[in-house]
């Protein structure tokens, strides 16, 4: 299990999807805001709560081909499955890697971002909690969609069409401060669903 996790993290590190890339992405998505909507601080606060979710969704969604597709296409998935016969182990390792690489940077730079957009301390904690529990569920969702679409023609748009409707509940509750318990519940539900469906998808494709 830990060897696999180590391997996935090393792979992410080598593929130069380092902390700086992801966090720069988040910062740039948010920097667009004042250019588009002006510098009115009340308005920016409202928009910040929404756009940060768009940034998170994009970061998770655009990179979803790295979860299973890359390993499937170059054959590494075969090797991994031979060495680690429990598919659940493989899937959990992918969850952790994807979350650490594409979500964790957001949480590290979130204090600075909230500062830039005049978010009060109380709101900061609520936003943080919402993003945290929401991002877990969103990672579970892209993982199973990635496992299901391994053999589909390689297009991120197809995957986006499948994923975004499933993201909507997270986005709805995510932008409402204080609804982190609901997000936690949604994440737990998607965890159960994702485990089954990802394992099913992987089993089909290695055959």
């Amino acid at each position: 299990m830990f060897a696999l996790l180590k391997r996935d993290l090393y792979l992410a590190l080598y593929s130069s999807s380092s902390f700086f890339y992801t966090s720069s992405f988040f910062i740039l998505i948010l920097i667009i805001l004042p250019f588009l909507f002006g510098t009115n601080d009340v308005q920016l606060q409202v928009l910040f709560k929404g756009i940060i979710w768009i940034g998170l969704s994009l970061s998770i969604l655009l990179t979803m081909e790295r979860i299973f597709n890359a390993d499937y296409e170059d054959g590494n998935l075969d090797v991994i499955i031979q060495r680690y016969p429990s598919l659940e182990t493989i899937i959990i390792s992918k969850y952790i890697t994807h979350w650490v690489v594409y979500c964790l940077p957001l949480f590290i730079i979130l204090p600075i971002l909230s500062f830039l957009f005049y978010v009060s301390l109380d709101n900061f904690f609520l936003i943080f909690l919402n993003l945290f529990f929401g991002s877990l569920g969103m990672v579970f969702i892209v993982t199973f969609v990635s496992a299901l679409t391994l053999g589909a023609k390689r297009t991120i748009f197809l995957k986006a069409i499948i994923v975004i409707p499933l993201f909507i509940p997270f986005l709805i509750f995510g932008t409402n401060l204080g609804s982190w318990p609901i997000l936690l519940a949604l994440s737990m539900m998607s965890f159960v669903l994702s485990m089954y469906v990802s394992a099913y998808g992987l089993r089909l494709y290695v055959e």
Partner: peptide
């Protein structure tokens, strides 16, 4: 869009045996 996703997924997998399994799951 849920319908659309189902139909697109079915169309994008060339191996139709596989496609019916996958889209049933979706």
């Amino acid at each position: 869009f849920l319908y659309l996703a189902y139909i697109f997924l079915w169309q994008s997998i060339t191996n139709k045996d596989l496609a019916s399994k996958i889209s049933a799951a979706l």
